[in-house]
Design a binder for these strands. Structure first.
Lengths: 196, 196
DNA sequence: GTCTATATTGCGATAGAC
DNA sequence: GTCTATCGCAATATAGAC
């Protein structure tokens, strides 16, 4: 097998297993069995289990680099916020494991948190903060908004919808078919509030 | 040592260690050493590591039973929502480990999820849904709100503020002294929206 | 109720053959 | 680059003494 084929296969399998049971819940024996290769391949290619985990993390959070895309358009602040909501929904839909690494690292950080996870999250938040500040300075948004709090509010709404899936799937459909309704709904609450 | 003293001591130590490194990240050796007792005490009192973990989970989510308190008052729907925000903030302040079990079980459920965690979360959500429905039927809230989506929005805002602490502590203060400002802020966004 | 001692299994890492 | 075989250690659980 080609060197990169095996590397990618191991990363792909490790992504699923680490997501499902955490770094300590998976042995390199199980990983190498699932990949159909010898246990020694993990040390050879990644320098050990932690090295493999760090490669998985790096791939998971590499998608955060493309957050700039929501900011490129010559659009209003509100349009950019909707673009952010769409961007984050697409990411969760394309990668159902991301939220597990995200919450796991935020609540039980490994040694890789500050190098991989923290910068990725901070970048997204800083871009959103600038969008809110832009809206405030152009008199679109209320003057008394705290930009960071406001960003955490919108990010929290969207992320929690996915985080709560297991506990709320009997109350509400989490199917992608409802995504457009959801986006409209969250944009309404975020812009107009819930009062009639 | 009295039987219950030892049980409580083990649960207390296990709560911290399981929160910090997860079920698979802690050995019963380390647990019993930290408690200053023999390793066999864990099997004797809890039937093994998983039994101890389930006792920890049960204690963590027992606080959810008191959610009714926010609903007892003869108050408006909006007042009850503010009471919920306060209730959830107090819980996170009093127990910094709760969020770790909460997110860990939602993204990597153990065998205890459906018995302990799911009912606790669902109870809170159902009470909040009824509050939103009450506000809608009394013409306080917009008619076109989906109650469950709306509940997840407010729960997401507050919980994510705490979840994101590690990644945002350089952008914003998470000190309890700011809690009142935060409550006002989130209530404003949730009721009036961000538009000026 | 608590301890020590031990049985058994599984872990991560690596030396050395090919 | 990949494998087999193995080392040394740590895991959970429990038998039996007190």
């Amino acid at each position: 097998m080609d060197k990169n084929d095996l590397r990618n296969k191991l990363i792909s399998i490790a992504t699923r297993l680490f997501a499902e049971r955490g770094l300590n819940g998976v042995s390199i024996r199980e990983l190498s069995n699932a990949a159909g290769v010898s246990i020694s391949m993990i040390s050879y290619h990644f320098g050990g289990k932690e090295g493999l985990y760090s490669s998985v993390l790096q791939e998971q959070f590499s998608s955060f680099e493309h957050i700039e895309e929501i900011n490129n358009a010559d659009a209003e602040a509100l349009t950019k916020i909707e673009a952010y909501i769409r961007w984050i929904i697409v990411r969760h839909r394309n990668n159902p494991y991301l939220l597990r690494f995200y919450t796991s690292e935020l609540t039980n950080p490994t040694q890789f948190f500050s190098l991989i996870v923290q910068p990725a999250i901070e970048k997204v938040i800083q871009i959103l903060v600038r969008i809110i500040e832009e809206g405030i300075s152009k008199n679109k948004f209320r003057k008394d908004l705290n930009p960071v709090d406001t960003v955490l509010a919108i990010a929290g709404m969207v992320n929690y919808y996915f985080l709560s899936t297991l506990a709320t799937q009997e109350l509400i459909s989490h199917s992608p078919e409802r995504d457009e309704v959801l986006i409209r709904h969250y944009m309404d609450i975020f812009t107009k509030g819930i009062l009639s």
